[in-house]
């Protein structure tokens, strides 16, 4: 009787001892995962493979703008869906091309010129940005953006769940962009100026 009970008692003892430890480890691991996932990260030393990525074809109006004013000194693009007839989504590419030294900003919606505004020109020596609007297309993934922009490093900041679940902002060489669910939703170039 005692011989048969002993292993069971030992097993029960071990279970009582090990189970809380295992649970504690799992809880700790979960917490650690949560914390590390929320931490910003810098990725450097990227050697992006040379591969074909989709490009946006400039519309006629955009080509005319380039012919008149040149490529923008800075540009911002927002990608989102609009609901069309029968509830089908249509991808919208909302672009703002900024010519700070000329004091002009042009807005395009899906390549169609939607607005042109003027501002007082900035008298600064802008360093040319190495990007062009057509390099970026809607909902690219991270590897696509890295490849298109030929990035070698970036810093990624995850956004709070309450603000935008699965949202991340990225900062790279004269560039910032935002991704949600692994898709490019916002991109803006950040020109530099050479100051005396």
């Amino acid at each position: 009787m005692n011989k048969r009970l002993l292993p069971k008692l030992l097993l029960a003892g071990c279970a009582c001892f090990i189970a809380p430890i295992a649970i504690a480890i799992l809880i700790g691991l979960g917490y650690c995962l949560q914390v590390s996932a929320a931490m910003p990260k810098t990725v450097s030393g990227i050697s992006a493979p040379e591969r074909a990525v989709d490009v946006w074809s400039l519309s006629l109006e955009q080509q005319q703008t380039v012919a008149e004013l040149g490529y923008p000194e800075s540009f911002a693009i927002l990608f989102y869906d609009e609901e069309r007839d029968a509830g089908s989504p249509e991808t919208i590419r909302f672009e703002t091309w900024s010519y700070y030294s000329r004091g002009i900003e042009v807005t395009f919606i899906n390549g169609e010129k939607a607005a042109e505004s003027s501002m007082d020109p900035f008298e600064v020596a802008l360093v040319e940005i190495p990007y062009r609007p057509e390099q970026f297309t809607a909902y690219m993934n991270l590897a696509g953006v890295v490849c298109a922009a030929k990035l070698t490093s970036f810093t990624m900041v995850p956004l709070e769940r309450r603000l935008l679940p699965s949202g991340e902002t990225y900062f790279a060489d004269r560039l910032t962009f935002g991704m949600k669910d692994g898709e490019l939703r916002f991109l803006e170039t950040l020109p530099l100026v050479e100051e005396e």
């Binding site: 911002a76 909302f94 909902y139 935002g178 949600k180």
Partner: peptide, 10 residues
């Protein structure tokens, strides 16, 4: 893919 998400990212 809402415009709000794009605006929040901006």
């Amino acid at each position: 893919r809402s415009e709000d998400a794009a605006l929040l990212l901006m």
